[in-house]
Design a protein around this nucleic acid. Structure first.
Lengths: 245, 245
DNA sequence: GGGGAGAGATGCCGC
DNA sequence: GCGGCATTTCTCCCC
């Protein structure tokens, strides 16, 4: 098939808001929040029904170039090269893909309105702690969860056994400097807004980096080792059983 | 084509380390750092040559499910359903994709060893400031760039006109709380390690959020409005010219 | 391999 | 729209 025929298929699919999956050799220019140039190579190019554009190389998780939704796409043919011009005027982002050869081109209206069920997030951790306060320490009495204050939101907020205000910051994986800084900010702001001299800070995570721990303890805060909850465990257990064979 | 034939094509491509692009109706189970379930719908499934797996819905920039590189993929056919079992034992991550119908399946050895040329990063900003110190303020004398200290690295480090040690933290977009905390940490650490009572902090970014500015000024630091440099501007200018038509 | 931080981060929610 | 923050963040760099 010639590039001109591919141009017509592309143009049609864009107009009909079908998803487009193309395997091709191409060159990519981008200008927007930054500027980039990617010279000729084989790539997977996807245009989704919401006009999102992705360019993937044969390695790696992330697209090498992309455009967000609400991008307009225009196809043109010039001197034996197919050109895809993508524009997001609202974001002032521009991309030109020069397509030298098309290896495969598929278009289809995709039917999918399903959303992901996800378990084991930071919010799930906060809920688990709220419902099992002794995980933090004996006598901890939670008051609120995901409480929004002007400067962010507090995962779990409550009183300790001596009725001292206590702020829990959860991290689903390794806690780092940034987590400690966040906790420090919340403690400072709550002290100010409530006019209380002492507010405790607790960082709940499966682990904490040594330097972050040093900073945490320097501030007089506490680390509690807690794993995020995994409730969809049946699948996991099945895998373990299967792996045993 | 029947699912059994697709199974053979898939199996072959996986063994030959070809890239695979499949349009299909499928169900996805994931278990690893978290757990997820995605019920039946039309998806784009990609297996790259480095064994990275991506599952894309018809909307959005990010894959709805994925596996990282160094994952093994196994294809099986059971009761009229094609099953792709993906395992990353090192990361303890598992995914099962049940494929109900294949709309399109392409495999190909992709040739691409090109890397992206990118301009306008935070590092580019630091270099620009290092070479044009008056952008920060009159009399600023930079000493080092990207200096690694035990607790992170300092974008630009130098003396101000009064020979006071000054730390510059760059952000290529909006500076937020986290940027201010980072600067605060560096100032504190440099004071301690050098035994100097006064160290200045400067945040260089195109803009700063009002709350972050309040925190910054509360710490006695300074904000300087600086845009990241865009050196590949020719393409951008051409676009503006084209858009005018 | 861990620590630390950037990213054209994206996506979500609240105001 | 902006602000604040989580993310199965990913990726890179340095130790």
């Amino acid at each position: 098939m010639k590039l001109g025929e591919y141009a017509i298929i592309l143009d049609n699919a864009i107009k009909k808001k079908e998803s487009i999956i193309m395997l091709c050799s191409c060159t990519v220019n981008y200008s927007g929040r930054a500027e980039s140039y990617l010279s000729k190579g084989d790539r997977i190019v996807i245009i989704k029904e919401d006009t999102t554009l992705l360019v993937h190389q044969p390695k790696g998780s992330n697209p090498i170039n992309y455009m967000k939704y609400e991008t307009s796409h225009d196809v043109s043919l010039n001197k034996g090269v197919l050109k895809l011009s993508s524009r997001n005027l609202a974001l002032k982002e521009y991309m030109d893909i020069l397509i030298h050869e098309v290896y495969s081109l598929r278009t289809r209206k995709m039917e999918d309105n399903k959303t992901l069920i996800l378990q084991g997030t930071e919010k799930d951790m906060a809920e688990m702690i709220f419902n099992n306060p002794e995980m933090i320490e004996k006598g901890f009495k939670p008051l609120t969860m995901e409480e929004h204050i002007k400067f962010g939101f507090i995962d779990v907020f409550g009183h300790d056994k001596d009725n001292i205000l206590t702020i829990i910051e959860c991290k689903r994986y390794n806690a780092d400097f940034s987590a400690v800084s966040q906790l420090q900010r919340y403690v400072k702001k709550v002290k100010e807004s409530r006019g209380v001299p002492i507010v405790r800070g607790v960082l709940a995570a499966p682990r904490i980096s040594p330097n972050a721990k040093e900073m945490l303890e320097g501030l007089g805060y506490k680390f509690v080792k807690i794993e995020p909850p995994m409730h969809l465990e049946r699948f996991n257990k099945n895998q373990k059983t299967l792996d045993a064979f």
